[in-house]
């Protein structure tokens, strides 16, 4: 007997990052994180900067995502992200440096600049979290 699985596909404009059969997906939705299990209703949702997690059996994997959207239809989960990085690809030192510079800039910034720096800070924090997990 086979248990229903989700077919997860994470693509960015430059490549297919992940394509796998998984048991559970956690998405950083624009309105809050959401978990997807097999049999989920069709969903179209905008994503923000954050961690995408997926579970295969008892093994969990994480990606650092930046913006995009996800489509869930008939156990196919398609994630279209602007940027998606695997833990192995993340340069933690660079992310830490980004975090510090964004924190500094945030103190003086306002308006659009503030939003930009906040996005940079969020992406740095996410990348560090993803890379240093486990």
């Amino acid at each position: 007997m086979t248990v229903a699985k989700l077919h997860l596909k994470v693509v960015t404009p430059t490549r297919v990052v992940v394509e796998a059969d998984v048991d559970e997906v956690t998405l950083p939705g624009a309105l809050g994180a959401l978990g997807i299990l097999p049999g989920h209703a069709p969903l179209l949702c905008a994503l923000r900067i954050g961690e995408l997690g997926y579970r295969q059996g008892s093994r969990e994997h994480y990606l650092a995502l930046q913006w995009g959207f996800a489509e869930v239809a008939a156990d196919d989960v398609t994630v279209l992200a602007d940027v998606a990085e695997l833990p192995a690809e993340i340069d933690v030192e660079a992310a830490r440096a980004d975090k510090l510079s964004a924190e500094d800039a945030l103190r003086a910034a306002s308006g659009e600049e503030f939003e930009q720096q906040r996005a940079q800070l969020e992406s740095a924090v996410t990348r560090i979290a993803v890379a240093t997990r486990r």
Partner: peptide
């Protein structure tokens, strides 16, 4: 084909 749940609203998406 599919009636999606939209998040946020379709127009905003």
């Amino acid at each position: 084909l599919t009636s999606y749940i939209f998040e946020p609203a379709p127009r905003a998406l």
